[in-house]
């Protein structure tokens, strides 16, 4: 990765470096996994940001969940405050916009409101997106996003299946992210491409495991990754054991090997973990960036992963799941 320096972000990176120190280390995770119960887990979290204000809540599970929610929203808010580059901010927040659009389109199918499925507002408030989709109120939407959204809406109205909604909006989101970062620093291009590749590799194995027709995979693939549709088309014909060789010249060989394990073990847990580790390894490299916007995005990724892992440990403790089983889900590159 090319190292870059942007003095505009000297303060932001300083703040992020301090915040990174507060990320939970692997040792801390190992201790949390060994917690006897939820009360013990809360006690172990009491000196971390997740435990702040926990004494005001009498229910330990609720206190931890509130901490997770607060930290997750806090990391988004921090990114929003520190990031001055509107293009990058929009690229990162597309995820929330498109997720909220999925919720809006699905609310129409479900004929009801899906409040718990909403993410915090991205580039546009939820109600603005809803007004655009439901009432064609486009005034508050930027022209390029408006055109994209209109074409998505037309496509979804033709075939309003939930799978089609997700697939159409995912493809559109990545297309917009790519167009946003095409002139940006290579880090951002690599980041978007890597996200597309990981989504496509996951889709490839999941379609193959479910014995879907090839056309189903082709429709699910997101264009713009380092591996194009014809690559997956050829790989589809290959026996599953020969796939690592097909991917050996890519950085995804390890991920693919774990994908193959899914067929032997009947579980995608290893693949999910390998994909997460790949993501974290990519973002870990930004720790070498002294001044720049990259550490901000990476911090957001690490923080989100941390909250996910803590939520998993919490669920594990609530259901008395063996610590060794929980450890299998915690990625190595965390913290």
């Amino acid at each position: 990765m090319e190292l870059r320096g942007n003095p505009d972000y000297a303060y932001a990176v300083g703040v992020i470096r301090v915040k990174e120190k507060a990320l939970l280390s692997q040792e801390r995770f190992n201790r949390l996994v060994e917690a006897k119960n939820v009360e013990d887990l809360l006690r172990l979290l009491s000196d971390t940001p997740y435990g702040e204000g926990s004494h005001e809540e009498t229910h330990p599970e609720r206190a931890i969940r509130q901490g997770l929610e607060r930290e997750f929203l806090g990391s988004i808010s921090l990114f929003s405050t520190l990031c001055h580059d509107q293009t990058i901010k929009e690229t990162v927040f597309y995820r929330y916009d498109f997720h909220n659009l999925k919720v809006i389109f699905k609310e129409r199918s479900a004929k009801g409101r899906l409040e718990p499925a909403r993410y915090p507002d991205g580039n546009y408030p939820f109600d603005v997106l809803r007004a655009a989709v439901e009432e064609n109120a486009w005034l508050d939407i930027e022209p390029d996003f408006r055109d994209t959204l209109r074409s998505c809406k037309a496509k979804i109205e033709e075939d309003p299946l939930p799978y089609v909604i997700d697939n159409t909006l995912d493809k559109t989101m990545f297309a917009m992210m790519r167009s946003r970062v095409k002139d940006a620093d290579p880090f951002f291009r690599e980041w978007v491409v890597s996200e597309i590749d990981l989504t496509n590799i996951g889709a490839f194995f999941r379609c193959r495991y479910a014995e879907r027709p090839r056309a189903y995979l082709m429709a699910a693939l997101i264009p713009g990754g380092t591996l194009d549709a014809s690559f997956y088309q050829k790989a589809w014909e290959e026996p599953i054991e020969s796939l690592p060789a097909k991917f050996q010249h890519t950085s995804y060989r390890k991920v693919v090997e774990k994908g193959i394990e899914a067929f032997e073990k009947g579980s995608f847990a290893s693949l999910d973990r390998a994909m997460l580790e790949h993501r974290l390894a990519f973002h870990r490299e930004t720790r070498n960036v002294a001044m720049g916007i990259e550490p901000l995005i990476s911090y957001l990724v690490f923080k989100e992963t941390e909250t996910k892992m803590l939520r998993m440990i919490l669920v594990g403790k609530m259901n008395r799941i063996d610590p060794e089983t929980l450890k299998e889900f915690i990625p190595n590159a965390l913290g």
Binding site: D166, L314, V315
Partner: peptide
């Protein structure tokens, strides 16, 4: 495990319809 490893909003959205 899935409900713990996915963001609650993602899971809710995925299974809403």
């Amino acid at each position: 495990f899935v409900s713990a490893t996915l963001n609650p909003q993602d899971l809710e959205e995925a299974l809403s319809v």
